[in-house]
Design a protein around this nucleic acid. Structure first.
Lengths: 182, 182
DNA sequence: CCATTGCTTGACCAGCTGGTCAAGGGTTCC
DNA sequence: GGAACCCTTGACCAGCTGGTCAAGCAATGG
């Protein structure tokens, strides 16, 4: 499954044939269809497992932190770390979002992450630490920053993951202008 | 070409066959290969034209504005408007980024946009209006916000384009915390 | 009136796809 | 021993793919 994920990410899902996967694994085709009902289900399984793992990483890091703003920060950092360590899966997420067949699979888990994060944003607004704006939109903005920064920066190896995380956190918290500006 | 772009976005590039496109257009297959040398080149052409159009929209709006921060804001707004009006193309961009064959086509134009935006960020830093951080990273963060907000929000019709743009601009400028906070 | 040119057609092709299945190991248990 | 079970094999298949091409059509120009 791990091998298949790498092949899909490298060559694209459709262009990568089942024959190619089983050949690379040195097994017969039958064994593939013994464990997976279809090629489609294989990718679905890969996606589900990856999302579960990402969420696990986020939760583990956030668990002990009471402050909502810090929780958001930790979430951002752990996500970037995970996406850095699993770039091929990040690519698959991106692809899956463009295909009507796989998009629903992503949505389920993304909604959970989204809700968690939105809750922290709401908490921050209640505490007066985060400015009063639609929490859902702020959440999407944060996820956008994380996603794009990871994609662009880590794909080209221009910086270390923790440096990218530092800048991402600073941007999400302070924006372009920084504290003390209109 | 417009019809093909819609089909690709709706059904995915690979699953959409040339036969399907020409049938939907009510023409023979030969005419397709008279105008395009391959299916791959069709998508490449669609992508190139779309990127050109997006850039044109950005440039037109920014032209008369001297203030770098306002330029950035106008750029964000025009991008969101364009992506809103051409959602299917936004989907294709996202797909193209995941395929090694098409990614280079995107990169060329994206680099131009990236450089333009980075220049405005640099100007803002020199003016002291934008806090001192790596302009390239800030640029990527902005593009991430715009991209994700557009994708998530406009795809589900949860808000009007100009509302999304307002929030995007506010987030990029002030972040979560807003002015006057550490 | 015919030749040339530019476009259009759709039957056709080789190649590859996801998926099937009869056949054959290896273990385990009686 | 042998039967039952689980796993594995790879030849095989129908269906569809991107792409070709001989043939035909309409307009133009001489």
């Amino acid at each position: 499954m791990d091998f298949a994920a790498h092949r899909f990410a490298a060559g694209g899902y459709h262009p990568t044939s089942v024959a190619e996967i089983v050949q690379g694994l040195g097994v017969g085709k039958g064994v593939f269809y013994w464990y997976f009902s279809s090629k489609e289900e294989l990718l679905a399984e890969i996606l589900r497992e990856a999302q579960l793992d990402l969420r696990r990483a986020q939760r583990a890091v956030i668990a002990g932190e009471p402050d909502p703003v810090r929780r958001i920060e930790m979430g951002i950092r752990s996500s970037i770390d995970w996406l850095d360590a699993n770039r091929h899966l990040a690519t698959l997420f991106q692809f899956a979002a463009t295909e009507t067949r796989f998009a629903p699979i992503l949505r389920a888990s993304q909604e959970l992450t989204h809700n968690d994060l939105t809750q922290h944003v709401k908490d921050g607004i209640i505490d007066g630490r985060i400015r009063d704006a639609d929490p859902a939109i702020l959440t999407l903005a944060i996820l956008g920053v994380v996603g794009n920064l990871t994609r662009a920066f880590l794909a080209t190896e221009r910086a270390r993951a923790d440096e990218v995380a530092d800048t991402a956190v600073a941007f999400c918290l302070q924006g372009l202008l920084g504290p003390g500006q209109a």
